[in-house]
């Protein structure tokens, strides 16, 4: 039986989320409108409103090891409609970050891998090189021919360039990555185990 533990301060997790995201989840009265509008809700094991509820009652492990926080597409439908104006997207962002920092196993490895290739591409060129990202991701996930047909169609119409194109203000991109370096390093050294 999973139980609400009260050995530690019950607000510990919600306070942490509040400190990192600026969002006060105690305002949530569980109307469920966020989950009702979420385009990915049908894929989620734990619905977005329940994630908020679990934060309220300090169920940190359940939240940080859930797939919900990785499946969230940050489309902001929830935040746009929330009657209490809780920015769920910010909260989800913070939860993903905490999940990585504290070494929880990500149940959606594909998503994590995709995010890493995506960021690597942005780091190198200042924008995403779609062809490179697609190829890397598909090779790494051992499905090299997955998007081939679609890729060729897009390529023929000139929608995806063959070579990566570097943007002009690369120094600014470098600045952004430098700022987030401590987090990225921790993420790289952590990972797995929990």
């Amino acid at each position: 039986m999973r139980c609400l533990l009260v050995e530690e301060e019950v607000h510990q997790f919600s306070n942490l989320v509040k400190a990192l995201s600026g969002e006060d989840v105690s305002k949530c009265y569980q109307c469920g409108k966020c989950s009702a509008g979420c385009p990915i809700a049908s894929e989620m094991e734990i619905l977005p409103n329940r994630i908020i509820r679990l934060i309220q009652i300090n169920s940190k492990d359940t939240v940080l090891s859930s797939s919900t926080i990785w499946l969230c597409a940050s489309c902001e439908t929830c935040f746009t409609r929330c009657p209490e104006e809780i920015d769920l997207v910010r909260v989800m962002d913070v939860l993903r970050r905490l999940s990585l920092e504290e070494g929880y196993r990500c149940p959606e490895e594909g998503i994590l891998r995709f995010n890493r290739f995506f960021l690597a591409s942005v780091k190198n060129y200042g924008r995403v090189h779609e062809l490179g990202l697609m190829m890397k991701y598909n090779l790494a996930s051992r499905q090299p021919f997955k998007d081939l047909g679609q890729g060729i169609a897009l390529f023929r119409r000139g929608k995806i360039p063959l070579r990566p194109q570097r943007i002009k203000g690369m120094d600014q991109i470098k600045g952004i990555f430098a700022k987030s370096k401590p987090f990225l390093e921790r993420e790289a050294s952590g990972g797995g185990g929990r």
């Binding site: 039986m1 999973r2 139980c3 609400l4 009260v6 569980q30 409103n49 329940r50 509820r53 679990l54 009652i57 169920s59």
Partner: peptide, 12 residues
């Protein structure tokens, strides 16, 4: 039971 979270609870 926390019916919103769907888990049984115990409070000391």
């Amino acid at each position: 039971t926390d019916t919103l979270a769907g888990i049984p609870v115990e409070v000391e």
